[in-house]
Nucleic acid binder design. Sequence first.
DNA 1: GACTTGCTATCTGTGATATTTAATCACAGA
DNA 2: TCTGTGATTAAATATCACAGATAGCAAGTC
Lengths: 215, 215
Amino acid sequence: MAAPDIAPLDQTKLRENAYFALRDAFTRGAFAPGDVLTLRDLAAKLGVSMTPVREAVRRLVAEGALVDTPSRKLMVPEFDQRRASDLLVARLAMEALALDQAMDRMSPDDVEALRQVLDGVPESPGAMPDLVTNHEFHFTLYRIGGSEVLLPIVEALWLQYGAYLNLIVMKPEASTIPEHVHHFELLDALGAGDRDAAHAALRADINRSFTFLMS
Amino acid sequence: MAAPDIAPLDQTKLRENAYFALRDAFTRGAFAPGDVLTLRDLAAKLGVSMTPVREAVRRLVAEGALVDTPSRKLMVPEFDQRRASDLLVARLAMEALALDQAMDRMSPDDVEALRQVLDGVPESPGAMPDLVTNHEFHFTLYRIGGSEVLLPIVEALWLQYGAYLNLIVMKPEASTIPEHVHHFELLDALGAGDRDAAHAALRADINRSFTFLMS
DNA sequence: GACTTGCTATCTGTGATATTTAATCACAGA
DNA sequence: TCTGTGATTAAATATCACAGATAGCAAGTC
């Protein structure tokens, strides 16, 4: 049985809390492809009844982070080369749009805020992949664009990618990759207002994050 | 395996049925921006209890076809120029990808099947916009690509666009636009294997469908 | 008389629980 | 090893209880 460390929730907006708790688990790579989840189990772990968990889970299914099996079980999608490849091209396309919108609307303060996200990151080789900072960096950037259409789609793509994150975290080689190199490149390009360089850095970063998945 | 082919029964999943019923309504332009819906009302109309409707509605919210208002009401999103513009660029980007995948995998039979979709449409000016055929044509095409990642995203984009469809249907000028011109262009390009022409036709068609929304 | 204020009746989504229905598993008999 | 059966378990749906929000109306104020 999967369902790793998930903290219990406080008693307001149970559905949302349940959703965010599960989503966070995905962005940390806590779920492995093929894991089977049960509503009862999740409800018990989160300390609420099945109803809010059911709705949180429904949303995750709609976003592609979980799938319904024919036997009405819930599963983290199995790894699938085609799927990974589709996620890559979709992320390249949508995040390029989100980057463009961010650059259209960005202020110097925004660039500074983005730089802050990377502050204090040790850039030490050999550490665990810094998934949380990586996520925060990208979404701080995309939020500047402020699109109610693009952002949810990009979030869903990351969520689906998150199901495979577990495969990456497990690989010892994963920690040898310098994680924030392209982020700093991107930051410089944004500071200089160099659109082409920014796109190149973003593409490189997204491709980097799929390195271990695309055989 | 047992002797004769017996078609498997389709699962009577109330939740799914409710979802598809509502989604169909969107693709026909049945909802107008700003419409307020209630769970009890929908449940009564669909002849089921609130629970399956709730989950169908939750999914529509996740897909952006409905929004939660601060006062916990369910609403079809108001028209919003920024949002419409974002929908346009997102559709252009994602459907271009879906078209590429379809062309990579397409057989002559597929082209024929696609042609069949347009068979029997009168191409008569002055008729109601042929929304259903339009939808079917695009998705028959994208299904050839068969991406579990791209298709749901494109569906969600159409669903959000569907909330604005009502605004278009109401305009008398809308029926003056020749609806399937670009579809036939696209079909010819697919038959000839001309990738650039296919993309040009698709872009033209998507832009066409936003004509009345982008002031 | 027009406008505010405050109360109430009602409507809505939310979460919990009970009920129904389907899927799985273990086991007995071939 | 296979097949059917019944017990067990879980999910899907229905129903219930409740809290927040709203609309309507009546009393009070300028």
